[in-house]
């Protein structure tokens, strides 16, 4: 689970995020919603360890800043809003998801390879395996990165606007995948604009407005606050 206690994130001396205290429950899907600029991405980046913060932000019992980055990557995976179409194949990208689990010389064994293949199949992009990232569509790229973080096999999965660029069919696939991850006991947090489709998936909702948390609780109640 993720515990927040007076979390502050600042950028150029301005506080862009000022949160109170709440806990994301383990093994559930929590949605983070709010207008553009409300601090959703910033919040996820802080949990992913990308941004420094003041206050307390714990994963389980550990303060995130105290966990070395390689170990943190075994517990938390992060799909950012913008993904890069690098010069490599889809399969190569997904294989990178195993990076935090390997030490030098980082050869993938048969277990790793099975995990990679399963992740690709789960996201339904088997046909794209040997295609270069630069030659696939934006939606297919997003799905490829999704497969990568699945291969990372972490207990906590963060996704920043994962629905962007996905068509209806792929969005459904995304929600199904996230739900089945939750059913496996993983903790999922994702930000969304597409509330009609994503709200039914959330177990809990955090609403942010101008960097502050204005609501944390059940989706039914959240709807009334919007």
């Amino acid at each position: 689970m993720i515990t927040v206690d007076n979390l502050k994130v600042s950028y150029e001396d301005k506080n862009v995020l000022e949160l109170g205290s709440f806990t994301f429950p383990e093994g559930k899907i929590t949605g983070v919603i709010g207008r553009n600029g409300s601090g959703k991405s910033t919040f996820l980046k802080a949990i992913a360890g990308v941004l420094p913060y003041k206050g307390s932000l714990k994963v389980g019992k550990d303060e995130i800043t105290s966990v070395p980055s390689e170990l943190r990557a075994r517990r938390i995976s992060y799909l950012p809003q913008r993904v890069v179409s690098a010069d490599m194949t889809v399969k190569m990208l997904v294989r990178h998801g195993r990076y935090p689990w390997k030490s030098f010389p980082r050869r993938l064994n048969s277990d790793d390879k099975r995990i990679v293949d399963d992740a690709i199949a789960r996201v339904g992009i088997n046909g794209l395996s040997s295609k270069n990232l630069k030659s696939i569509s934006g939606g297919e790229l997003k799905l490829s990165y999704l497969a990568m973080i699945l291969a990372q096999q972490t207990d906590i999965i963060l996704l920043d606007e994962p629905e962007a660029h996905l068509d209806t069919e792929h969005r459904q696939l995304l929600y199904n995948t996230l739900s089945s991850l939750r059913d496996e006991g993983k903790t999922v947090v994702f930000t969304s604009h597409n509330l009609t489709e994503s709200m039914p998936v959330f177990d809990k909702v955090l609403i942010l407005d101008r960097g502050k948390d204005v609501f944390f609780g059940d989706p039914e109640e959240a709807k009334t606050k919007l």
């Binding site: 990308v50 980055s69 992060y78 799909l79 950012p80 993904v83 990165y145 990372q152 963060l158």
Partner: peptide
Amino acid sequence: GDETASGLG
């Protein structure tokens, strides 16, 4: 990209 790389540790 920096964000994904950070996510991977």
